[in-house]
Amino acid sequence: MKIKLELFGASRDFSKKDYLEFNLKEKSSIKDLRNEILNFVENNFKGNDNYKKLVQSSAFCSEENNIVSDDYKITKEQSIGIIPPIGGG
């Protein structure tokens, strides 16, 4: 199942594009996606601690624009946004 991860804030440093793509097993959860992103950081940025912390402290946003918890089951191919700690205004 292909998931397009839309990048925001500091997570934009993960790629020159504004998204990353992951292949997840059926019935995966946000927790599984988070682990896949941590693996990506491990493999592409030598386990950069700041990037790992960023992933661990990020929320995720479903295609329906809801913030979803780690238990949320991803039931179809979709775009999911990674929402790092925020601080605008």
Binding site: S57, S58, A59, I67, P85
Partner: peptide, 12 residues
């Protein structure tokens, strides 16, 4: 990028 407030409960 400036550090900010996490939107998730870190306890989860």
């Amino acid at each position: 990028w400036l550090k900010g407030n996490p939107l998730i409960d870190q306890n989860q």
